[in-house]
Simulated scan of single mutants.
Amino acid sequence: MKQRTRNPYVFRGLIYCAACDRRMQGQYNHGAAYYRCRFPQEYALANQVEHPSNVYLREDALTNPLDTWLASAFTPHRLQQTITAMTDAQPLEHPPALATAAQAIITDCDTKLERYRAALDAGADPTVVTGWITQTQAECARAEADLHTQSGTGPRRMSRTEISNLVRALGDIAGVLRDADSADKAEVYRQLGLRLTYEAETQTVRASVDLSAHRGVMVCVRGGT
Results as ranks from 00 to 15, higher is better:
residue 1 M to F: 10
residue 4 R to S: 13
residue 5 T to E: 11
residue 6 R to K: 15
residue 9 Y to N: 05
residue 10 V to Y: 06
residue 11 F to R: 07
residue 11 F to M: 10
residue 12 R to Q: 15
residue 12 R to G: 09
residue 12 R to P: 06
residue 14 L to V: 08
residue 16 Y to G: 00
residue 16 Y to M: 09
residue 16 Y to F: 09
residue 17 C to H: 03
residue 18 A to E: 11
residue 21 D to L: 13
residue 22 R to M: 06
residue 24 M to K: 03
residue 25 Q to N: 13
residue 27 Q to P: 02
residue 29 N to K: 13
residue 32 A to E: 07
residue 33 A to L: 01
residue 34 Y to F: 09
residue 37 C to R: 08
residue 40 P to V: 01
residue 42 E to L: 04
residue 43 Y to H: 15
residue 44 A to Q: 04
residue 45 L to H: 14
residue 49 V to M: 12
residue 50 E to W: 12
residue 51 H to L: 03
residue 54 N to P: 00
residue 56 Y to L: 08
residue 57 L to V: 09
residue 60 D to K: 11
residue 61 A to N: 10
residue 63 T to L: 13
residue 63 T to I: 14
residue 64 N to R: 12
residue 66 L to C: 05
residue 67 D to N: 12
residue 68 T to C: 13
residue 70 L to T: 08
residue 73 A to E: 14
residue 74 F to A: 00
residue 75 T to F: 12
residue 78 R to G: 09
residue 78 R to M: 15
residue 79 L to T: 07
residue 81 Q to Y: 13
residue 82 T to F: 04
residue 82 T to R: 05
residue 85 A to L: 10
residue 88 D to N: 14
residue 88 D to H: 10
residue 89 A to R: 05
residue 90 Q to F: 01
residue 92 L to R: 03
residue 93 E to F: 11
residue 96 P to Y: 10
residue 101 A to L: 05
residue 102 A to M: 07
residue 102 A to W: 05
residue 103 Q to E: 11
residue 110 D to G: 14
residue 111 T to G: 06
residue 112 K to A: 08
residue 118 A to C: 09
residue 118 A to L: 10
residue 119 A to I: 07
residue 120 L to D: 02
residue 122 A to C: 01
residue 123 G to F: 09
residue 125 D to N: 12
residue 126 P to D: 00
residue 127 T to Y: 05
residue 129 V to I: 11
residue 130 T to P: 02
residue 133 I to K: 02
residue 136 T to V: 14
residue 136 T to Y: 01
residue 137 Q to Y: 07
residue 139 E to W: 06
residue 141 A to Q: 11
residue 143 A to R: 08
residue 143 A to H: 07
residue 147 L to R: 08
residue 147 L to I: 01
residue 148 H to I: 12
residue 151 S to T: 13
residue 154 G to F: 06
residue 155 P to C: 15
residue 158 M to P: 02
residue 169 A to V: 03
residue 170 L to D: 03
residue 173 I to R: 11
residue 176 V to T: 14
residue 180 A to S: 14
residue 182 S to P: 11
residue 182 S to K: 13
residue 186 A to T: 05
residue 188 V to L: 09
residue 189 Y to A: 01
residue 189 Y to D: 03
residue 190 R to L: 13
residue 195 R to G: 12
residue 196 L to Y: 10
residue 197 T to H: 11
residue 198 Y to V: 07
residue 199 E to F: 15
residue 204 T to E: 09
residue 207 A to Y: 07
residue 210 D to F: 02
residue 212 S to W: 02
residue 214 H to S: 15
residue 217 V to R: 10
residue 218 M to E: 05
residue 221 V to G: 03
residue 223 G to T: 09
